[in-house]
Simulated scan of single mutants.
Amino acid sequence: MSSPMDQEKTAFHVGEIAVQERAHGSGPGWRRAVSRVFRDTMPDQHRAFFENQSVLFLGLLDRKGCVWATPAFGETGFVRSPDARTLRVNAVPALHYELAFDMGEGAKIGVLGLELHSRRRNRLNGEIVKSGTDGFDIAVGQSFGNCPQYIQARAFDRQDRLTEPMEITHLDGLTEEVQALVERADTFFIASRVPEMTDDPRDGVDVSHRGGRPGFLGVTGKSTLSFPDFNGNRFFNTLGNIEADGRVGLYVPEFETGEALFVTGRAVIDWSPDRAGTFAGAGRIVDVTPEEILYVRNVFPAGGRLLEAWPGLETTGTWGEARGCGG
């Protein structure tokens, strides 16, 4: 593991550094170089990007410290950036009241803006500095962009679906209906956290996107959700949090129907090359043991249709193929 001195000079905490070194052997020089990508302010293009979105994907904690991934919706313009250090969201997150998210002053939050039709995405992690019944303000801790890899291009039409109240079902396990939703998914979102929240901008909540061929997220064993970790930007923000803490939240949407699965639980990284080798481009497998499961109808207020899958997904494998029963 790298020395505390290495950590002090970079944008990464000790969990991220440990995974980086195990995965690709990157040293302090690489970390110092790529740390320039992480800013404590949003560049103007990121501010304009966020303001053009009609959905944000968030990572939040509940009052018990469990972490959840959840969306927030609005008409285009519901997100504003009054200055380079502030993002103002004029909406409340989905399931905020049902799950009692911690949105008080100083609460940590992860934010992902994802423009699915263009495959553009930008992220920021920070803390809530103001909160009310109609929205909240976020102070930037870390602002950075991500590449378009594994994003499925989609178009949305809010007129496709009438606004109906959410129907929330708390589950004791992964029912057949939920398993079918999981294995149809080509996209999901994962939130993660560090063990202790401090004033250090590296210590907080993160949310990121995962994409692949339908079946890349699977139910393994009796109740474990598993997915391959494909090679990406090598920052390992999510896996670094898993290494340091292990608490995660998954949001698995069915864009066409508006239903979704919300899970909070514990994740571990499986470094076995034989298991990861089932999925081309994967370096390891992540296994999630659910501790709380919600199946929700009418979450996404817009109908979504696939425009184009990420190129090359045919070679990436599925859990069906891993079990030897076809895709």
Rank of each mutant, 00 (worst) to 15 (best):
A33H: 11
A94Y: 05
D172I: 03
I190E: 12
V19Q: 04
S3F: 09
P195K: 05
L124C: 09
W319E: 02
G27A: 11
A309I: 08
I293R: 12
N122I: 02
T238L: 06
A155C: 00
G215R: 02
G258A: 07
F73D: 13
G221P: 00
I128M: 09
T163Y: 08
G211N: 01
F300M: 05
I109H: 01
P301D: 08
W310Q: 03
I293N: 14
N233W: 07
S3N: 13
C147L: 05
F73V: 06
R234K: 09
G324R: 04
N233Y: 05
Y150Q: 10
C147F: 10
L239V: 10
P290A: 00
A91I: 03
G221T: 01
F227L: 13
T198L: 09
R85C: 14
D137P: 03
D186T: 04
P148Q: 02
F12L: 09
E164V: 11
I293K: 12
A48C: 06
G232L: 05
E254S: 11
A33Q: 14
R275C: 13
W68L: 08
G283L: 07
T169E: 14
E196F: 05
H170Q: 15
F136Q: 00
G104A: 02
Q53Y: 05
A260T: 02
G283Y: 01
M5K: 06
T169Y: 11
E196R: 08
P214S: 11
N231S: 14
V182C: 11
A185I: 07
E167Q: 15
C147G: 04
P301E: 06
E164S: 07
L181Y: 11
P82G: 09
G29K: 10
P82F: 08
D157A: 06
E75M: 10
D200K: 05
S35M: 01
Q53V: 00
D137F: 06
G211V: 01
L124S: 05
V182G: 03
G249F: 03
G312K: 09
A276H: 13
N241P: 01
P43W: 09
S3H: 15
T10F: 03
A267N: 10
Q7Y: 07
G281Q: 11
A280K: 01
A94S: 14
S2D: 15
A72M: 02
A69S: 15
A69E: 10
V129D: 08
R32D: 12
Q149T: 07
R32F: 00
A69W: 08
F300G: 06
P201I: 12
G221L: 00
K222Y: 09
V79F: 02
G110P: 10
T10K: 04
